[in-house]
């Protein structure tokens, strides 16, 4: 993608300056595309943070659609989110993600003076390790370590929980009734 088309692409997403990382880095095309779709439950900042964390934990999660998956399922009465199994009521799920993503975003700013989507791969891993450790005293929302587990599981769902994910692991999916969509 050349500079012009990149500019056009970002403009088309409607993100504008607000979508640029605080550190000045541009969104990757995949990040920009992910948040260009209408978001129902998450803000763009929250979506970008989710995408950055998911990708750091499970490479491929961003392309596999973790942002769209979480955003869509947060609006479903009978959600597919694994959080359903972990004692969080459906009505509390949007707040669970929003508050923790806000904390994760602020943590990134404090650690690296960057928004999560602008972190280098090594910075993103260090950021994720910090969340997993649950030692951030300014963290608000669900416990950081629990949030880490949930997002990692979500990312695994979108990366490995489909026939494509099985193929990537060289194992047969063997569906009785194949899902028409991944989620």
């Amino acid at each position: 993608m050349n500079d012009l088309s990149r500019r056009n692409f970002i403009a088309s997403t409607g993100i504008g300056l607000a979508g640029l990382a605080a550190g000045g880095a541009l969104l990757s095309p995949r990040q920009a595309q992910a948040v260009s779709l209408p978001l129902k439950a998450l803000t763009k900042d929250q979506a970008l943070t989710l995408g950055a964390l998911g990708e750091a934990l499970v490479p491929g999660a961003l392309e596999a659609g973790i942002i769209q998956y979480i955003d869509k399922q947060l609006g479903e009465p009978n959600t597919l989110l694994m959080l359903k199994y972990l004692g969080v009521d459906t009505s509390a799920m949007p707040g669970f993600y929003r508050s923790a993503l806000g904390s994760a975003h602020r943590l990134s700013q404090r650690l690296f003076k960057k928004s999560p989507e602008a972190l280098t791969a090594n910075e993103a891993l260090a950021w994720a390790e910090n969340i997993a450790a649950g030692t951030d005293k300014e963290w608000q929302g669900p416990p950081a370590g629990f949030f880490f587990f949930v997002v990692r599981a979500d990312a695994c769902d979108v990366v490995f929980g489909s026939s494509a994910g099985s193929e990537a692991l060289n194992i047969p999916y063997m569906a009785h009734i194949a899902p028409t969509t991944s989620w």
Binding site: A56, L86, F148, F160, I171
Partner: peptide, 29 residues
């Protein structure tokens, strides 16, 4: 299965990032 609450991906939450794929490939078999 690879994913899900009982899946092997979630049996090792300490493995993430670039180390995850090699683990998954081994566990799958």
């Amino acid at each position: 299965k690879p994913n899900g609450l009982l899946g092997y991906a979630n049996s090792r939450p300490d493995i993430f990032g670039p180390k995850l794929q090699p683990f998954m490939a081994q566990a799958a078999k």
